[in-house]
Design a protein around this nucleic acid. Structure first.
Length: 650
DNA sequence: ATAGGGTTAG
């Protein structure tokens, strides 16, 4: 029955080349080579073979290849197959394509027919050298294919991101009657893009009795998480009686990448309690969970464990990102400076991190340094650079990098780059330029482009263009909550109350609800959450008092509640009341009550900060001599001594 | 003998 399932996975009309394989052409393997004129005696050949054997094991590759030439000149083949396996390994570690192909020719020329496992090892070599054409040719020409040949090809396709073709190959393999084993399944699972496909494969695995293999398990767990089926992923994890470290890593990694960072960290703690020693992969996932939830203190705790692996590049990159995303640039810089090895990800992370934290000029400086002494920038690096330009209002620089990225770095501009340029024009108030840019882009503008433009309309209070942009977003993403809210905000700004009401009516009609503003912060190893207009926090009474006295103190410095940011057409008092209990104001008050001398207050927000709270935070930072850091979904605001790192430009 | 899983930047 599962076979039927499997076949439905692929479109049967797109068959790969190997379907042309004629089974009757199959030649038995390992048959002796045809007779050739013997020009040398066995005694004369002996030393050549011995030298060859030695060199294949100890290298260097160049000398081993000379020994191979010597064998070739007498049409000799080493009797010990292991010699060739060693030689293939030498070619691989030297990354020498020519030598690899030469070994291939040696093995198949002169009428010799090498054993299948030797051909498989050549296949693996081509794959690892990135020579897919050679691999494909060899695979198609194989006189016989066993489960290893198929598995090698399948996993190669997956690594190239060709999951669909890998699945097709899997179907063909089964059709040729080859039984998949745990090696095959642990690979093929990675090719599953949907829960349905995954379930079909999972079903086969159970039927083959291979579901207890750790590799298969960890692969399954990871895949369920990737496809968004957290429950099944966790179930596979849970059924495991005897854990192996990697299984922990798969499930922690899975939760860390979904939005369940909490669960990931919970498991991380549980894993440590069970006596497992976290390795690089575990710690990287744990850091990612901290990054996702912006938990600086938890991240710092994980950092302690990282010290053991202080040279691990991936881990250092994750650490770097964690500090950037948690708004702690001093620590990020510290890590970056002392990393012995930095790759393109390290540089890109730091550049974006600086830009997201309002230090665009520093970001561009670092980019210059990268060009001088770092690795070659890639697609993502340029996204960070353009982000820096748009957020600092550097229109000319941004346009320069955008226009010359192809020539300078060989990178074709993609969606994200176009988005940055729309943002670049939009933020700078050049709404017309942004719009005509959108209209003449090579890409069909997607929802993100239009949302970016809509955001610019909000900043520059342009309600006419906003209506148009919102329409375009809703065409692409019907019922998009954020768009309705942004639009109603813009109309409220412009005091077009009837339009506000109109939007709200549509929202009600479609069942779209406004997500309440939410802020959270870590205090005393606990995460405290504040929701706009919600008074359920146990210390609400003292928070309210603190807030009142803060408002009083900053009022003497000129703070006037800016009720423009209240959406409803309330009376003034009602507006001030609703403004006072914005979630970030409550969080600021709470932070003032509990923050330690000399430490900054760090607040996370689910929505963009409103103008009134922004002004309030600036004044509090001055009045109280406190650094306040607020992270919204896109960037950080560092409030210090009455000013914000965003330069009031967000 | 040849093939496998979990980890980083927008």
């Amino acid at each position: 029955m599962h076979t039927v399932e499997m076949f439905s996975i692929v479109e049967m009309n797109r068959l790969p080349r190997l379907s042309a394989l004629a089974l009757h052409r199959l030649i038995p393997l390992g048959s002796p080579p045809p007779f050739l004129a013997q020009t040398h005696s066995a005694a004369e050949n002996e030393p050549l073979i011995e030298t060859f054997t030695q060199l294949c094991r100890d290298g260097p590759l160049s000398e081993a290849m000379s020994a191979l030439d010597a064998l070739d000149s007498r049409n000799l083949r080493a009797a010990d197959h292991a010699d060739y396996l060693h030689l293939v390994k030498l070619c691989l570690s030297a990354g020498d394509e020519a030598a690899g192909r030469r070994v291939h020719r040696h093995l198949t020329s002169g009428g010799h027919r090498p054993m299948l496992f030797l051909l498989n090892s050549l296949l693996g070599m081509y794959v690892r050298l990135g020579l897919m054409d050679d691999a494909r040719q060899l695979f198609d020409a194989l006189p016989l294919r066993n489960v290893v040949s198929w598995t090698t090809m399948i996993s190669a396709l997956i690594d190239l991101g060709l999951g669909g073709e890998a699945l097709e190959l899997f179907v063909f393999m089964r059709r040729e009657g080859i039984q998949p084993n745990m090696f095959t399944f642990s690979s093929v699972i990675r090719a599953c893009g949907t829960v349905r496909t995954l379930q079909a494969i999972h079903c086969s695995i159970v039927k083959c009795g291979l579901d207890s293999d750790v590799f298969v398990r960890s692969s399954l767990i990871d895949a369920y998480f990737r496809c968004g089926d957290l429950d099944s992923g966790y179930q596979v994890f849970d059924e495991f009686i005897t854990l192996d470290l990697v299984v922990w890593n798969a499930v922690i990694g899975g939760f860390a990448q979904s939005s369940s960072g909490c669960k990931a960290l919970e498991l991380f703690v549980q894993m440590k309690r069970s006596g497992f020693l976290a390795n690089q992969a575990t710690l990287t996932s744990a850091l990612r969970a901290c990054t996702g939830m912006v938990l600086l203190e938890m991240g710092q705790q994980v950092h302690v464990h990282v010290l053991k692996y202080r040279t691990d590049l991936i881990l250092n990159n994750a650490l770097l990102d964690m500090y950037c995303k948690c708004g702690s640039l001093e620590e990020a810089n510290f890590i970056f400076q002392r990393m012995l090895e930095k790759d393109v990800i390290s540089w890109s992370t730091m550049i974006s991190g600086l830009a997201q934290n309002g230090q665009s000029l520093e970001a561009l400086k670092l980019f210059k340094l990268m060009k001088a002494e770092g690795p070659k920038p890639n697609y993502i690096t340029i996204v960070g650079v353009l982000f820096a330009c748009s957020h600092a209002g550097l229109v000319d620089d941004g346009l320069f990098y955008f226009r010359s990225m192809k020539k300078l770095f060989g990178i074709e501009p993609g969606n994200e780059h176009y988005g940055c340029i729309v943002d670049l024009f939009g933020r700078a108030g050049k709404l017309d330029a942004a719009l005509s840019f959108i209209h003449q882009m090579e890409y069909k503008p997607d929802a993100i482009i239009w949302r970016t433009f809509l955001g610019a309309c909000r900043v520059h209070k342009c309600s006419e263009l906003a209506g148009y942009a919102a329409q375009e977003v809703l065409k692409l993403v019907p019922g998009d909550e954020g768009t309705y809210i942004l639009l109603s905000n813009i109309y409220a700004d412009a005091k077009q109350w009837s339009d506000v009401e109109q939007v709200r009516k549509v929202m009600r009609g479609r069942g779209v609800r406004k997500e309440p503003g939410r802020s959270w912060m870590e205090v005393g190893k606990k995460t405290h959450v504040f929701i706009a207009g919600d008074f359920s926090h146990p210390q609400m009474e003292s928070i309210s008092k603190e807030l009142e006295s803060l408002v009083c103190r900053v009022s003497s410095m000129g703070y006037v509640p800016d009720t423009e940011f209240v959406l409803h057409d309330f009376g003034r008092e009602q507006k001030e009341e609703s403004l006072r209990y914005h979630s970030e104001k409550m969080a600021i008050a709470f932070g003032m009550m509990y923050s330690m001398e000399g430490k900054s207050i760090r607040i996370m927000k689910n929505l963009r900060i409103c103008g009134d709270c922004h002004a309030f935070a600036k004044l509090v930072s001055k009045a109280e001599g406190k650094v306040i850091v607020i992270r919204d979904p896109v960037r950080f605001h560092h409030f210090c001594n009455g000013a914000c790192s965003c330069g009031d430009y967000w």
